[in-house]
Write a protein that binds this DNA or RNA. Structure first.
Length: 347
DNA sequence: CCTAATGATTAGTG
DNA sequence: CACTAATCATTAGG
């Protein structure tokens, strides 16, 4: 028991180089490396007393402790003692060990940052932002419908998200700075009454920053989510499908039925049709793909439509000169169905 | 509501 | 890569 008590005490203040005077008289330590100065003993005694007071201060009543604290605080040895204790804390790594400096730049955070940048949420201000967003849409979406009407809606929503994101980010930043200065002030304040090394403060600031950056990551993550939802809601044309204008379908149908024997527009023809209908080339291709398959699947259903558009005579199809004598008569005379049976594309 | 029409997407093919 | 065929998701209309 006695031994254990000694051990505990020794563990508490038993610091190499700082002899203790708390134990039994018989146990006066005599470190070998202590310089044999004449007045070494009184000084050691002095420090030992201070330490003893510090150790017992928690056992005392508040008022009494307050007075003792004050007395200790004003002791001439205090600064030196504190600096020594700070050094010891550093050396023993009492408060370190959680400083995995240079954390490997969390790959997930990188991913989020890159994505936000690509979406134009994080990057520079307005102009570049929307351009970046459009570029990203074109790059990943493959098809970038420049139908600006609904696109502006998308941009509005995106800039809304961005606004919120930046506001939140700034709020976090401010809160972080506030908290940091608060903690620093607190530590500085405390450093008058307990040994705190500057490095410790530095480390504390680092911890705070890491914590806040993890909060920031949450913000980034949810922002990314919001952008993704917006994307799928507005840019996925499948969801936001708009029928082509009457005029556009007219142009397309005209081409289709006037080239019924070979309804495969060349790339140039597609480009021209796209321009005329103010849609993209891919949309033209989609339209023709759909039209061909649906026409073939049920020719009867399209007869009426065919007759309407057939009044425009085919121009130079691959070689079909058969319909030369066909004059554009009144639609009522088209009771006899036009025969599209010459389509090799029907197999 | 339901259904047909319709533009877009996807898997599969050459 | 262009195309077909099937399918999805939305729109228009009864």
């Amino acid at each position: 028991m006695d031994e254990q008590g000694r051990l505990m005490q020794a563990r508490g203040v038993g610091i190499p180089g700082l002899p203790i005077h708390g134990g039994p008289q018989t146990l006066t330590p005599h470190p070998m490396h202590e310089p044999p100065t004449d007045n070494g003993e009184p000084r050691k005694q002095d420090i030992g007393d201070i330490l003893q007071q510090i150790m017992t201060i928690t056992d005392q009543s508040l008022d009494e402790a307050q007075a003792k604290k004050h007395a200790l605080n004003c002791h001439r040895m205090k600064p030196a003692l504190f600096s020594v204790l700070c050094e010891i804390k550093e050396k023993t790594g009492l408060s370190i060990r959680n400083s995995q400096e240079e954390e490997p730049v969390d790959p997930q955070l990188m991913r989020l940052d890159n994505m936000l940048l690509a979406e134009g949420v994080a990057g520079p201000e307005k102009g570049g932002g929307s351009a970046a967003a459009a570029a990203a849409a074109a790059a990943s979406g493959g098809v970038s419908p420049d139908n600006s009407i609904e696109h502006s809606d998308y941009r509005n929503k995106l800039s809304q998200i961005r606004q919120i994101y930046h506001a939140e980010l700034e709020k976090y930043e401010q809160a972080c700075n506030e908290f940091t200065t608060h903690v620093m002030n607190l530590l500085r304040e405390q450093s008058r009454t307990r040994p705190i090394s500057p490095k410790e403060i530095e480390r504390m600031v680092g911890i705070i920053h890491r914590k806040f950056s993890s909060i920031q990551m949450q913000l980034k993550q949810s922002t990314c989510e919001a952008v993704m939802i917006l994307r799928s809601r507005f840019l996925d044309a499948r969801r936001k499908r708009r029928n082509f204008s009457k005029q556009a379908t007219e142009v397309l149908n005209e081409y289709f039925y006037s080239h019924l024997s070979n309804p495969y527009p060349s790339e140039e023809a597609k480009e021209e049709l796209a321009k005329k209908c103010s849609i993209t080339v891919s949309q033209v291709s989609n339209w023709f793909g759909n039209k061909r398959i649906r026409y073939k699947k049920n020719i009867g259903k399209f007869q009426e439509e065919a007759n309407i558009y057939a009044v425009k005579t085919a121009v130079s199809v691959t070689q079909g000169g058969h319909s030369g004598a066909n004059s554009p008569t009144t639609p009522t005379s088209a009771g006899g169905v036009l025969a599209p049976h010459d389509g090799p594309w029907l197999q």
